[in-house]
Simulated scan of single mutants.
Amino acid sequence: MLFSTAGIEVAIWVPPLVAFCISFFTSMGGVSGAFLLLPFQISFLGYTNPSVSATNQLFNIVATPGGVYRYWKEGRMVWPLAWTVVLGTLPGVFIGAFIRVTYLPDPAAFKLFASAVLLYIGLRMVKSLVSPPAQKNGTTAGAPGIRHADTHCTITDVRFSLSRIGYTYAGERYEVSFRGIALLSFIVGIVGGVYGIGGGAIIAPFLVTFFGLPVHAIAGACLLGTFMTSIAGVAFYQALAPFYPGMSVAPDWLLGILFGLGGLAGMYFGARCQKHVPARAIKWMLAGVILFTAGKYAADFFLS
Rank of each mutant, 00 (worst) to 15 (best):
F227M: 12
P245F: 08
F227I: 06
S248R: 13
A279C: 06
P245C: 10
L254W: 11
P251I: 09
P278M: 07
L240C: 11
L264W: 09
V277A: 06
A265S: 14
Y237H: 15
P242D: 11
C273N: 11
Y237K: 05
V234W: 01
M267Y: 01
A241F: 08
G233F: 02
Y237F: 15
I257A: 12
A265V: 13
Y244K: 04
V277T: 14
A281W: 12
G266L: 07
L261E: 07
G233S: 12
H276G: 09
G262Q: 07
Y237P: 06
L240G: 02
M228Q: 05
P242V: 11
V277Q: 08
L261T: 09
C273E: 12
F259H: 12
G266E: 00
P278V: 09
A235M: 13
G266S: 11
G270E: 05
Y244P: 04
P251R: 04
F243V: 05
M247N: 08
A281Q: 12
L255I: 06
V249W: 01
G266R: 04
W253T: 10
A279H: 01
A265E: 00
V234K: 02
A265H: 02
S230Y: 03
R272S: 14
S230I: 05
A279R: 02
L264H: 01
M267Q: 15
G266M: 08
P245R: 07
A232M: 13
F227V: 01
V277I: 15
M267S: 15
A271P: 10
R272N: 12
A271H: 03
V249L: 09
V234T: 11
W253C: 06
G225V: 08
G233C: 10
G263I: 05
P242S: 07
A271D: 07
G270H: 06
A250E: 13
A241P: 11
A279S: 15
P245L: 05
M247A: 12
A241R: 05
A239G: 06
A279W: 03
Y244I: 03
D252S: 14
P278A: 10
F243C: 07
L240V: 04
V234A: 03
D252V: 03
G263H: 07
R280F: 04
P278H: 11
P245E: 12
P278K: 09
M267F: 08
G270W: 03
F227S: 05
G266A: 11
K275N: 11
P242R: 07
A265K: 02
S230H: 04
T226G: 08
M228F: 14
L258N: 00
G262P: 08
S248D: 14
V249Y: 10
M228P: 04
P242N: 09
F243I: 02
S248I: 11
M228I: 14
Y244Q: 04
L264T: 01
A235T: 12
P245H: 02
H276Q: 13
S230A: 13
V249C: 10
G263E: 05
G270Y: 03
L240F: 10
C273G: 00
F236E: 04
A279V: 02
G260C: 03
G233T: 08
F227Y: 14
F227E: 06
L261W: 00
S230T: 10
M267V: 00
P278C: 09
G233R: 02
P245K: 10
C273Q: 14
H276M: 07
V234N: 09
G260N: 03
R280P: 06
W253M: 13
Q274G: 04
A265Q: 06
Q274S: 15
T226A: 14
P251M: 06
F243A: 14
L261C: 13
L255R: 01
Q238C: 03
